[in-house]
Every structure is written in C-alpha cells, then in structure tokens.
Design a binder for these strands. Structure first.
Lengths: 147, 147
DNA sequence: GAAATAAATGGAATGATTCTAATTTCTGTG
DNA sequence: CACAGAAATTAGAATCATTCCATTTATTTC
C-alpha cells in the first residue's frame, strides 16, 4: 500500500490512537488520509465514496466507526449545520464555520486566541466546556455570481 | 378554545406572521404556546406530544411545518447539537447553548452585546451572517450529583 | 504462531425528517 | 353570507442518516 499520508500526520494519527489504546488500522488511516486530502467538509457518505476508491470493500458502518474514533482523538471535528447530515473537518486550529445559504458551501473561519478566550468566558461558573461549536449562516462572497 | 398565550406573545406571533403573509392558525398558535410554556429545548417529537394534549389530531408533519414557519418568523431558534434531533428554543435574546455530556441537559447562556459584536467581527469581508449558532459541550454544574 | 482482544463487515433496524396527494380552512370579493 | 382561490393541515408513505448486531477478520501480546 502506498502511504499517501505525510509523515507528520501519520505520526499524529499513530500517537493519538496509541494514547487511547486504539489500533492504527488500514481503514482509520485511510479515512484520515481522505479527509486531509481535500479540505472541504464532507459527510460520512462523501467520505465513504472517496475511501472506497482505495479500499473498495469498506463499509459505511466502518466509516462511522473510524470517524467517531478520529473525533475522540481530536483529529477531526464534527460540524452540525441545520437539519443536515453531520460534516467532518480536519482543521485542528480553533475556528468557526460559515455556511452559505446560496451555494451551500461551508468555509472555515479562523478564530484568534483573544476572541476564543472571550467566547470561553461567556460560560457561567460551574460550566466547563471541552468543545465549542460556532457557526454562521448567511451569504458568502461567491454567491454574487449566482443570482 | 382557551387562550393560554399572553397578550404580548400572541400579538408578536400575529404580527410576525402577518408581515410574512402567513396565517395565524390554531396549530401555529398552539405550537408556539407550548414552546413558550416550558422553557426547555424540546424536539419536534416532544412538541408533538405536548400539543396533542390540546389538539389531539395534529400531525407530526404539521408540527414540522409550524416550527419551520416560526423559525422563519424568528420567533423560535433551532439548536443543532451532535447527531441528534433538532431542538427548538423560544429565547429571542442573543444567547448560546450549553450541552451537558453527563445529564444531556441543554442550557441557555446569555450573550451580551459586546461579546456578540466581537463574535460577529470574526467574519472576513464579503461574508454576511443572519444567524449565529454558538454551542458549548461539556460538564454542567448539576452533573456533580450524578457520578 | 496461538490466544485474546479490538475492529471491520453487511445487512437489518431505527428514527428523524420530508414528501405527496387529498382534504380542510381561511381570506377577500361580490 | 356564498364562493373562488390560496394557504395549511393531514395521514401515510418515502427517504435517508445513523446505529445496532452477530459474524468474521485483523492486530497485539506472549
């Protein structure tokens, strides 16, 4: 098998898995690989299609399993927009998402440390968040070209 | 039919609907009423159960229709957490949500104007958001009593 | 390399949401 | 008030994302 995954990412994956006593299987590696390759925000189904080009017999259930593991390992984030299938995102830096109503496109919007800490301080005492999801919905720049 | 909805809310609903050329039907009124009554974050299904106590023959499809209308009229917000059914929330003030991993409970977290405007300024030029969804996931205060 | 454990698999099951076609309810007009 | 037309509701079927389960396969450990 050719290793399409760069050394750094490969190691990140291996370590993240090991530290949680999870095995670095071919399927997990490939799912991670595919998500990194094209930095859009694919659904489990999209990912299934792409992974199948390399591992033709992989099942959708496995895609979900792998994704859950990657999320657990904090290598991938889930994005929940509207009443729509969950999307997955390999951007590990703090960021928000912008969802264009016109084109349906999803963009990453980077969040600087200061803003992030301001947002975190919103929480009253007693609440501890390990995950923050911030999404904007509206009109993106490209949507001009449509109408 | 008894009017359980306070005058203010009733008017708000009526006006919001009228301004969009939508009719204030019994079903819409009742759905709105039920959501305001108990300020948790019910799913469409929860709402269906509650509304049925007053309009026993209302269908789930209508609940979805009514909710969509209420969302359109900005009287109700949708909350998308995890891979779970959409929840609905009648809090019209700017606010975020906190989802407790332990109890499953969802809390409103109010967002002051300053924070809100800082968050809004995160967007690069060319992007215009009409909706912002901010959610925290973690451990809430009550979860102590569990373990 | 064999046993023990974790992961993958296919297919069935579940469950939220949407769709459709038929009926009912409103609204404005005469 | 009766009527035509538009908007909403309805039940049930259809869709589609996600999960579950029992079995098979891969990985790790000794």
């Amino acid at each position: 098998m050719k290793l399409a995954l760069p050394e750094t990412e490969r190691n990140r994956l291996k370590h993240a898995l090991k530290s949680r006593n999870r095995r670095p299987t071919r399927q997990r590696t490939c799912v991670y690989e595919v998500i990194l390759e094209k930095r859009d925000h694919p659904t489990a189904d999209d990912i299934h299609l792409r992974v199948r080009e390399k591992l033709p017999s992989i099942s959708l259930a496995t895609i979900y399993n792998c994704l859950d593991t990657l999320v657990e390992c904090e290598l991938v984030k889930q994005v929940h927009l509207d009443r729509a299938p969950t999307r997955f995102c390999p951007n590990r830096n703090p960021h928000a998402h912008f969802h264009c109503r016109v084109t349906g496109q999803v963009y990453d919007v980077s969040l600087d440390d200061e803003r992030l800490s301001i947002i975190e301080k919103t929480l009253p005492d007693g609440f501890t968040a390990d995950t923050i999801e911030l999404s904007f919905i509206g009109q993106g720049p490209k949507s001009d070209t449509i109408s």
